[in-house]
Design a protein around this nucleic acid. Sequence first.
DNA 1: CTAGCTTTTACATTTTTTTTACAACTTGTC
DNA 2: GACAAGTTGTAAAAAAAATGTAAAAGCTAG
Lengths: 135, 135
Amino acid sequence: MIPKGETMAIETIPALMKQVYRDDQLEIDFVRGQALVQGNQLVLTRKEFELLAMLAANEGEIVPREVLMKRIWGYSMEIRTRTLDVHVRRLRRKIMEFGQPCIETVFGVGYRFQRFRADRQRQSYSNVACVAVPA
Amino acid sequence: MIPKGETMAIETIPALMKQVYRDDQLEIDFVRGQALVQGNQLVLTRKEFELLAMLAANEGEIVPREVLMKRIWGYSMEIRTRTLDVHVRRLRRKIMEFGQPCIETVFGVGYRFQRFRADRQRQSYSNVACVAVPA
DNA sequence: CTAGCTTTTACATTTTTTTTACAACTTGTC
DNA sequence: GACAAGTTGTAAAAAAAATGTAAAAGCTAG
């Protein structure tokens, strides 16, 4: 159960966004709250799923730490804790169990989810700093 | 079996739903309010039956606690009580007497009834957080 | 009043989330 | 390159939250 009367961060997914994300390794059902990696069910906690959903919904874009913090943890979260990092780590680990890495760190800014395509090598991405993500 | 001619929250079962649920271990007659496990009559109280019906009617889907609370107990039920859990427990116990477990807990969200198939291992399911279940 | 059903209470247990304390890494500057 | 300052990664512990349970208390139709 989502803690009493709190809005789920999932509402933050762009309204026009498909209800499902899919690439060659990952499949996420935003509505039903399920995720598969290479066909294997990902067993995620609430925060882990929200994080993955948020990143995948902005696939290819850098999502700044502050934005993740604000939307998933609410406005007040202090910047000095490692909470976000810990969640990212656990999420990455669970995905890695069956698949390829898909969450990259953009130093000084945030994280970016990269779509996976089986038919080509994973390219590397520029580590840019300036992004505009709607608050 | 449901005690004599009482109204049941069975109205909550989707109108288009079949009047009977059946798998390899369980058989539920929503209309008559009867349930069999491996051929054995389940003696259920009203609330227990409503709970089972509600879950089985949404077989394979997570039914959030709030939804169960709202539909079976009405809107006002406080979140702090253990009423739902107690009923789930008694229901599970009665089913276990003759059969296999079929009600799983989805931490932080609710419960899910899983269809039983004699011919395959029980798979595991993700513990996702965000589900949309019609209110 | 009684029997059976339901809810509450009071903890126990489990699961998730956050914090802590460092290690490791980036980046800019000498 | 070496350093400093700032950022991110990590394991492990602590804290918080959610669920499980037994037993008692409360209700209600007969």
